[in-house]
């Protein structure tokens, strides 16, 4: 380890380390987080769910949206529309988007997450999240 010789260096270490605990800080306040769950059963993975998940993580990071968490879930039963994601805005019912690809990820972030606008591709708005 390199010695920390000033307040600025301490701050830098803090920023680097921030990532390691930020997920836990969010978890402490999960009710107020935007939750994105990517369906990652075999059908989802085969149609690119893993790439979608990574794209979400990266894009949210780039956009500095730090009140969102991305996790995965099993098959949600919409195999025909994979990759599918479940999006839960705080205090709202979850919605499901189907046929999500990289471009769609950005559209969801720009429109739904940032401005609360629903976009095409919702396949079920009466969906109950699986616990």
């Amino acid at each position: 380890m390199v010695k920390i010789k000033s307040l600025e260096e301490l701050k830098r270490i803090k920023e680097q380390a921030q990532n390691s605990v930020s997920l836990r800080v969010k978890g402490d306040n999960i009710e107020n987080m935007i939750q994105i769950r990517v369906a990652m059963a075999t059908c989802g993975i085969a149609s690119g769910a893993r790439e979608v998940m990574n794209e979400f993580v990266e894009a949210l990071g780039e956009e500095k949206i730090d009140n969102a968490v991305v996790t995965q879930t099993g098959c949600m039963g919409y195999c025909y529309a994979e990759p599918t994601i479940e999006l839960t805005m705080p205090g709202k019912d979850p919605i499901i988007y189907g046929y999500v690809d990289k471009a769609k990820v950005h559209e969801i972030i720009d429109k739904t997450i940032k401005h609360g606008e629903l976009i095409d591709g919702i396949i079920n708005s009466q969906h109950k999240t699986i616990e």
Binding site: L10, I13, Q18, S20, V21
Partner: peptide, 21 residues
Amino acid sequence: GFIDPENIDEYIARDGYAALA
């Protein structure tokens, strides 16, 4: 129950040593 006590970086991430600074 929040940080890994064996990793000082996690303490620093929680504003550790900022008070000393």
